[in-house]
Design a binder for these strands. Structure first.
Lengths: 361, 361
DNA sequence: TTGAAAGCGCTAACAT
DNA sequence: ATGTTAGCGCTTTCAA
């Protein structure tokens, strides 16, 4: 028979104390401040603890100590390579400091985010990581009143009264547009994420639009399509753009998932990328480098963001310094989905009103 | 100035009681058993509660009540379309019953899984969802001793002493292999997930192998490659298979991510899929349907699995019935990455020792 | 229907 | 270095 430590369901610190013939306060010390307990006693206690299969009672612990060594995170969705990696970075970093992570998702709904934040507060998290800036004053007030340190990520807003770790979505998006303008594109399409309640998505479109406007490049409203961040939605949006009488030569996407969907639609329709149409994404998720052709995009160091957020939060838990603002640098990664537009001769042909894009099946 | 409810950081049930001029026990009743409180009093208390911005203290609550209305889940990784969706299904289902979710990930390490399970128990989860069966006796013993209801998912094992919600990975994997055998393939490659500490990955390879063996189809060991579940690893594995003197005509993958990577490598190398090589995956993540060509795979209803797991756990919390076992049916989805192998004439040519696969860049 | 009071298991002063 | 003890904020008998 396999030997397993005897675990009785409800061993408390008191039981252990009794078995050791010492007071429960010392057991608590062994658990929380081992350095102040005489080494040999400490060893003996550890042995009994292990033998008895003692598991601390978290609720009792945090009720008494008023700390939980737990952090919370509320992300729009965990089913996203970007957020999954950010959370992973956060998780690892706080883990090294003895903190646990409580994860919740809002599904891009401010109401649900508020509910989750509230739930995390009830559960007593010592700090929390949020994404973006779109939330009600009530939420900020609650956070302030309960004195919960928090950081907003995927955002860089040095004037904000709370810390931010991220970048300027509008400015960065403009860089991508500028790049495509630089290589000669003049007819653009945008496949944006859903902008309602999503400041990052809204900022990105705003950045794309601003860059085009600065160069005097027009953008018919039919060329701007807003879609949830999924592959099939990206495909559908690209299909719609290709159906236009005068399709764009370059498509700016709200993120890499939409860009990937757009690219796949082109493959399905035998529209050559980048010869006939260029596609750019945002985030540089793993797939962007490995699909064929590779997607031109902005690299967001997701893991680093999680780690930096952790640092900021740990700092805030220790002391209450002025809100830190960490600017994360993004890098433009040019891959196979972008190239200069087809020559002007060809452009003239399609300008004749005839679409050169194959019809969707 | 914007009006926001006054939230004092530490309003307790006692403060509310004082403000209402009643005892704290009644406040507790309003919160937990509203039906036994006189309606008008109840209303008055609710008003004060809201006005004061009261937020219950979770730790105190669960210390006193010995329940947390919280469930835990430990998945290998959250950065996986499959697990993300399973968790989402679980989350939604338990949410409807007033439960919160505590999520942890093990990164496919049994040691880390054990630590996370322990942490969840410390935090007092009322039940938890796990994935697969590979864990030590100690963990099962701990779960038993602490009387934590749990369910193992992505697994169907009717004889197991704890509930399972899933399917037979070995049998299902064999179905895919059988399909490829049926359409004429005889030279196979396998790109498996890492089988150490991963029963699902191991069962899938075992299933592939068994199906081939049953039909007397040989499988050189060089044709079986084990890789972590990432796109670039899938690409690398496919590159290796294509470099073999006699490459397979069909490649069975451990999941869709590996299959996708394998497919992309073929695109990069201009190896035509399915004309020159067939590829099959497992899971049917969203991308499998939308990449080009679509990936032949087994559809795993991830959301349903999460929901069924929730049902089982909620049942177990209420009563302690015999372990339920829920069999989840998978469906074989045939898409563009599979087709009968090239004709025997061509097969003979490549059997001559010359590789027809382009060399990787 | 409501109140009084005894803990839930632990930590952290304060003593010694 | 260790023991004593008073809570932490809440739920839940038990009484009224």
């Amino acid at each position: 028979m396999h030997l397993v430590p005897q675990v009785n369901s409800d061993v408390t610190i008191k039981d252990i104390a009794a078995r050791c013939g010492i007071s429960s306060a010392t057991i608590s010390r062994v658990l929380n401040h081992p350095e102040i307990v005489r080494p040999e006693l400490r060893e003996r206690v550890h042995a009994i603890l292990a033998e008895a299969g003692y598991v601390p009672h978290g609720a009792a612990r945090s009720l008494a100590s008023r700390r939980t060594r737990t952090m919370g995170a509320v992300v729009p969705t965990v089913d996203s390579a970007l957020f999954a990696r950010i959370v992973d970075g956060l998780q690892q970093a706080i883990h090294d400091h003895g903190f646990q992570l409580l994860l919740a998702s809002s599904n891009y709904s401010p109401a649900r985010e508020a509910a989750e934040i509230r739930a995390l507060i009830e559960r007593g998290v010592d700090a929390m990581m949020l994404v973006g800036r779109s939330r009600s004053d009530e939420v900020y007030e609650l956070l302030r009143a309960k004195r919960i340190p928090f950081v907003a990520t995927c955002l860089f807003e040095p004037e904000a009264p709370w810390p931010t770790v991220g970048w300027d979505n509008q400015a960065e998006a403009a860089r991508v547009a500028d790049y495509l303008l630089d290589i000669g594109h003049r007819r653009f399409g945008i496949i944006a994420g859903v902008t309602a309640d999503n400041d990052r998505a809204a900022d990105r479109v705003a950045g794309y639009r601003a860059a085009l406007a600065r160069r005097g490049v027009g953008l018919p409203e039919a060329c701007v399509i807003e879609k949830p961040y999924t592959v099939p939605e990206g495909r559908a949006a690209m299909a719609a753009l290709l159906r236009l009488p005068q399709p764009p030569t370059a498509v700016l996407c709200g993120n890499d998932i939409l860009a990937f969907g757009a690219l796949q639609e082109c493959l399905w329709l035998s529209v050559r990328v980048p010869q006939e149409i260029s596609i750019a994404g945002f985030d540089d998720i793993e797939m962007a480098a490995h699909c064929y052709p590779g997607i031109t995009t902005l690299h967001v160091p997701a893991h680093e963001i999680g780690r930096r957020a952790a640092t900021v939060l740990l700092d805030m838990i220790k002391k209450q310094p002025a809100p830190e603002h960490v600017r994360i640098d993004l890098q433009l990664i040019v891959r196979g989905t972008t190239a200069p537009p087809a020559d002007s001769a060809q452009a003239r042909v399609s300008a004749g009103g005839e679409t050169r894009a194959p019809q969707p099946t």
